[in-house]
């Protein structure tokens, strides 16, 4: 690790802005992922916590965006933010697959003004970036952050209209449909990074119910050259899947709580240096670590017994 002090301080700030990437696990848990009939309601818990899927830390405050099978935007109903979790309902009236997504996009970074390094404020994005940097600032380092948290719910037969990609951050392309998973068949998915096959991404798979077992039973997988990964399931149930560069808590010790199990050590230092702005300038003229663009993807998948 070649982080200098200013960046360690930076990590703490970013942790607030992008919890999914650094500390704790962000998740949405639907009451059903597969429903039959023509008029159903599904309710969703949304929270940030260490143990999956137990709400005991923070609610997920953002109101998600619902995409209906016909491509139109659906409605989030009864959104309520509690102490530990948010809940909301979806009224399913169309046949096919719905997507519920929380996407966070932002710009983080720093600049030097009057010899002092300052962090870009929270809430900076590409639109207000220019205004966030004062005149006379030098050595500006920025990187974009795109974190995506999506769940899928299917009424009737699965459809693929909601998997239209935007080319931003990490996105899922189904090989196996995420609402068509059974324990005796592997789940195959492709992940795109900024619209292109995301080779070498780290895929962390953790079954729910952490509280009631000793071992985490996590799988740390890597996408191949085409961005594809094949997940073998254990028991039926809800699985949390997180895709990013370098695995959970890539900032290393200090950024999050203690890891319940051995970290995928190899993934950390090897994380790709992102972007061309590997600036020269920490105090004292020693090189600072580059500001890396952060992209992450989280989904909750229900795997049924055959």
């Amino acid at each position: 690790m070649n982080f200098r002090k200013p960046l360690l301080a930076a990590a703490a700030v970013i942790a607030i802005a992008a919890p999914a990437a650094i500390a704790h696990r962000q998740w949405m848990l639907p009451s059903s992922t597969t429903v039959s009939g023509t008029d159903n309601w599904v309710t969703v818990d949304a929270a940030v916590s260490n143990d999956l899927f137990f709400f005991d830390h923070q609610p997920m405050r953002a109101v998600p965006v619902v995409t209906q099978p016909d491509g139109t935007e659906g409605k989030v109903e009864n959104h309520n933010v509690g102490k530990f979790r948010a809940t909301f309902d979806l009224h399913l009236t169309q046949q096919g697959t719905y997507k519920v997504a929380v996407v966070n996009e932002g710009v983080f970074g720093s600049y030097v003004l009057n010899g002092e390094r300052k962090m870009l404020p929270r809430g900076t994005n590409t639109a207000n970036l220019a205004a966030a940097i004062p005149a006379g600032a030098t050595d500006v380092q920025t990187a974009e952050n795109v974190s995506r948290n999506e769940i899928f719910i299917t009424q009737g037969a699965p459809t693929n209209t909601v998997f239209k990609t935007s080319g931003k951050g990490i996105e899922l392309v189904p090989v196996t449909h995420p609402n068509d998973l059974v324990t005796n068949e592997p789940g195959n998915f492709q992940f795109l990074k900024n619209g292109k096959p995301g080779a070498g991404l780290t895929v962390t798979v953790i079954p729910g119910g952490i509280r009631y077992r000793d071992a985490l039973h996590e799988q740390i997988l890597k996408t191949d050259a085409e961005g594809k990964v094949s997940i073998k399931w254990g028991q039926p149930g809800m699985y949390w899947v997180m895709v990013n560069e370098g695995g959970e808590r890539p900032e290393g010790p200090g950024a999050g709580g203690p890891r319940p199990q051995g970290a995928p050590g190899g993934g950390q230092g090897a994380a790709p240096a992102g972007g061309p702005q590997a600036g020269p300038g920490g105090p004292g003229g020693r090189p600072m670590g580059p500001v890396r663009a952060r992209v992450s993807y989280v989904t909750t998948l229900e795997v049924l017994a055959p």
């Binding site: 597969t34 429903v35 039959s36 009939g37 008029d39 159903n40």
Partner: peptide, 25 residues
């Protein structure tokens, strides 16, 4: 009122996956 029956068809989950979900009821 919610059309009771069809809501639970998916509980016959093997049939639902193999053929049921593609049918109209």
């Amino acid at each position: 009122a919610e059309g009771a029956g069809t809501k639970w068809l998916r509980d016959m989950r093997q049939w639902w996956r193999v053929v049921g979900r593609g049918m109209t009821f």
